[in-house]
Simulated scan of single mutants.
Amino acid sequence: MKLSTKGRYGVSAMYDLAVHYGQGPISLKNVAQRQEISEHYLEQLMGTLRKAGFVKSVRGAQGGYSLTKTPEEISVGDIIRVMEGPIAPVDCLLSGKEDNKYCTKACTCVTRGVWAKVGDSITQVLDSITLQDLCNQVENEAGKPQL
Rank of each mutant, 00 (worst) to 15 (best):
G60E: 12
Q44C: 04
D78Y: 07
R50M: 12
A61I: 13
V82E: 09
G143I: 12
S75T: 15
V125Q: 07
E43D: 14
Y9V: 05
Q62L: 15
K101V: 13
K2T: 14
G143F: 11
L28F: 03
S95G: 05
L131M: 12
A18Q: 03
L126F: 14
S121A: 14
V31F: 01
N136D: 15
V118N: 03
K29Y: 14
G96T: 11
D133I: 07
F54K: 07
I129N: 06
R81M: 06
E84S: 02
E72T: 13
T104F: 08
T108A: 08
S121N: 15
M14H: 03
V118P: 03
G64L: 06
D120K: 09
V138L: 12
S128D: 07
L42F: 06
A116T: 06
R8W: 07
L3G: 04
I37N: 03
E84L: 05
E39K: 13
A13I: 14
G143H: 09
M1F: 11
I74D: 01
V125S: 04
M14F: 07
P89N: 10
A13L: 14
L67C: 11
C135E: 12
H40W: 10
S27Y: 04
L28G: 15
H20R: 15
L94M: 11
T68D: 04
Y65P: 02
G85T: 01
Q146F: 12
Y21K: 01
Y9I: 01
V110G: 05
E39S: 13
M83K: 00
G60A: 11
R50C: 02
C107H: 09
N136M: 10
A116S: 13
T111G: 02
G77H: 05
D120C: 00
N140S: 13
S128A: 14
Q44F: 02
D16Q: 09
M1I: 10
Y9K: 10
W115A: 09
G119P: 00
R81W: 08
T5G: 07
T68E: 11
Q23V: 02
D127N: 14
Q62A: 15
Q137R: 14
H40R: 15
